[in-house]
Computed example of a mutant assay.
Amino acid sequence: MSITLADARVVTPEGVHEGWLTIEDGRITHVGQGTAPGSGLGLGGGYVVPGFVDIHNHGGAGGSFPTGDPEQASRIADLHARHGSTTIMASLVTASLDDLTRATAALADLCEDGLLAGIHFEGPYISAARCGAHNPALLREPSPGEFTELLKAGRGHVRMLTIAAELPGALDTVREAAANGVIAALGHSDATYEQTIAGIDAGARVATHLYNAMPPLHHRDPGPIAALLQDERVTVELINDGVHLHPAMTRLAFTVAGPRRTALITDAMAAAGMGDGVYGLGPMKVNVVDGVARLAEGGSIAGSTLTMDVAFRRAVQEVGLSLAEAAEIASLTPARVLGLDGRLGSVSVGKQADLVVLTDELEVAGVMKRGVWITEPR
């Protein structure tokens, strides 16, 4: 079946142009400028951007990936898909090894079904000094052998591990992750500049929510932020919700790292898409007030209630990025992190028809995944 989307402002890696695109068998077959040939579905000048790719997400719609509950996971994925995230990775938090193994095995089934793009361990190999919304009693020193056992539960679907480079055994565990095709991400870390560089040299390639849960920049003690921003091998995650980061800090990271090394994430938890209240994040209790999630005990920020459409919109309206730049860091760069950029992440011929239609105000008007409407354009 062939679908033509006409009267659109198509956002491609090259920029924005008025035109049209054609989709056949779930893939983009033509991207043209001007008036579409023949009839098609008119979008009334709406923007067409690639489906968002969220590589760090703990939950939403009242559900939480760390529970490993398939029904909750499906509900989470549906919520975020309706906000434009057509590709999503499930992030776990620090828990007992038994709980991590159980949740990983359950989520691996959903990866095999195509609902999820992989599993991310955010913990337990992180710093007690920078653990944020993780239970410090459950933190562990990194162990390559132990990590390999966790990987078995994931049956090839564990895609990322967040780890603190300064911990004993961390560098060997980073090497083990890389050897198994798992992306090592540095974060929740109290590392020095030199220890962070050592982690990158060992194979780490992502900064878990840059700035958050790590020492701040200092002119005599640059710490992990400077190391991660400056190294061309590293992609930096940013939680662009106006709570975790001031827009100036998002702009600074983008200016240094550029669109190829900057990835928007949500770090969403169960309250995303919901109202204020009390929620769980793994074993931790979280209070959400005015849309801001904080631990009930201690008050640390505990994930976000963000969706990727809001992160995208803020990137344009608050940070000052172009639509093409915002599309790259919300879609193509995170797809590149996962090694999926050959088939999704941009509005390009031959790629999967994962698309988001946006209004003039950059609100979601429609979402398509693999050529099928999740939400039909309004």
Rank of each mutant, 00 (worst) to 15 (best):
P334G: 12
A263L: 14
V364S: 01
L186R: 03
H157N: 15
P222R: 03
P216D: 07
E149T: 12
T196Q: 10
V319L: 08
A108Y: 01
A105H: 06
T333K: 11
V236S: 12
C111D: 00
A191P: 06
G169R: 10
I163H: 03
G68C: 08
L323F: 15
T86F: 14
G277I: 11
G223N: 02
D98N: 09
D360L: 15
P216Y: 04
L238T: 01
I126W: 07
A133Y: 11
L238N: 00
A77V: 11
L138M: 13
G345S: 14
R102P: 13
R220E: 12
A73I: 02
A153P: 01
P142H: 05
R336L: 09
E122A: 10
T148Q: 15
W20K: 07
G342A: 15
F121M: 00
M1A: 15
L92T: 01
I225D: 04
T87E: 01
L229V: 02
V158S: 12
S331R: 00
I76G: 04
I163E: 06
G291M: 07
L110P: 07
L340V: 07
H56Y: 11
V310E: 12
A293C: 11
T4W: 10
A153K: 01
E232L: 04
G339H: 13
I239D: 09
L171I: 13
L295R: 00
D241Q: 01
L150S: 02
V286I: 09
R314L: 07
G154F: 07
P168K: 10
D290I: 05
Y193G: 08
A36Y: 03
Y125P: 07
G118V: 01
V174E: 01
L161M: 10
L306W: 01
R314Q: 03
P70C: 09
R205W: 09
H246K: 09
A6T: 14
A179Y: 07
W20D: 05
Y279W: 10
A330M: 08
L150P: 02
R140L: 13
D25N: 15
R140I: 05
S346R: 05
D276H: 06
G38W: 05
L21M: 13
A106E: 11
R313A: 10
V11T: 06
L161N: 12
P142W: 00
L138Q: 14
Y279C: 08
E237H: 05
N180E: 07
T29I: 08
E237P: 08
L355I: 06
I126G: 04
H244K: 08
V310F: 08
G118A: 13
D190C: 13
G123H: 02
A353Y: 02
R102T: 12
E194K: 01
H188I: 01
T250N: 05
V316L: 09
V158T: 08
L97W: 11
Y47C: 13
G298K: 04
G371V: 10
L43Y: 00
T262S: 13
L79Y: 00
D54A: 08
L43M: 03
H58F: 10
L217N: 00
I301A: 04
P224L: 14
R75Q: 12
H30Y: 12
D172P: 14
S127N: 11
V356G: 09
A315N: 02
G132N: 04
R260H: 08
H157G: 06
I88Q: 05
H58Q: 06
I23M: 09
D341Q: 10
E376M: 14
A330V: 02
L79K: 03
D221W: 12
G114S: 14
P37E: 12
A204H: 05
S91P: 00
